[in-house]
């Protein structure tokens, strides 16, 4: 038979052990579990890949960069 007075004390003891970090750890765990549950239950996931914009380099500028380095082009690799 449950002793509610003892359980109240036990509840407070457990709750006080849940610091911010520990709560966040549990939230992360619960969120991940929910995601897995949804997938196992047949829900699908839309994966959105981040599209990066192409990086344009002005050819003239890069040529001048190399020419300024003289013969020591390998120094640019560092």
């Amino acid at each position: 038979m449950l002793n509610i007075n003892k359980l109240n004390a036990k509840f407070d003891e457990i709750l006080s052990s849940f610091t911010e970090d520990k709560v966040q750890q549990w939230i992360d765990f619960a969120d991940n579990r929910e995601l897995v549950d949804r997938l196992l239950n047949g829900e699908s996931v839309d994966i959105i890949l981040e599209k990066r914009k192409p990086k344009y380099i002005v050819a003239d500028k890069i040529a001048s960069k190399y020419s300024n380095a003289g013969e020591n082009n390998y120094a640019l690799a560092a």
Binding site: L2, F11, L15, A30
Partner: peptide
């Protein structure tokens, strides 16, 4: 969920 995961079993419920 927080209670079910972390409390009930520990408390013997």
């Amino acid at each position: 969920e927080f209670l079910a995961d972390n409390f009930w079993n520990e408390m013997g419920i």
